[in-house]
């Protein structure tokens, strides 16, 4: 373990399975997932806005 309580994954010849297993155990790999707000934002920017813009462009 290093000073940041992370596993010793930094060797050049790192073994992927060992690196990932250790990092998962230490909780240093998985970040925060999406929220409902993110999906609503995507709906607004990716569906509502294009629909309104296309309607404006057509008229």
């Amino acid at each position: 373990m290093g000073p940041n309580d992370e596993p010793a994954y930094r060797d050049v010849d790192v073994d992927p399975e060992e690196y990932i297993t250790q990092a998962l155990k230490a909780g240093t790999l998985v970040g925060t997932g999406h929220t409902t707000k993110d999906l609503w934002m995507l709906f607004l920017l990716g569906v509502v806005c294009p629909a309104l813009i296309l309607a404006w462009g057509w008229m």
Binding site: G2, P3, N4, E6, Y9, R10, V14, Y19, T28, L29
Partner: peptide
């Protein structure tokens, strides 16, 4: 071996493996 002692970009050390949270800043 800890992050504080490591030099260079993360790609040079762990290649295409998942980046740890300490690098995802």
């Amino acid at each position: 071996m800890g992050t504080a002692k490591m030099k260079g970009p993360p790609e040079a050390r762990i290649g295409s493996l998942p980046l740890p949270l300490s690098e995802r800043t």
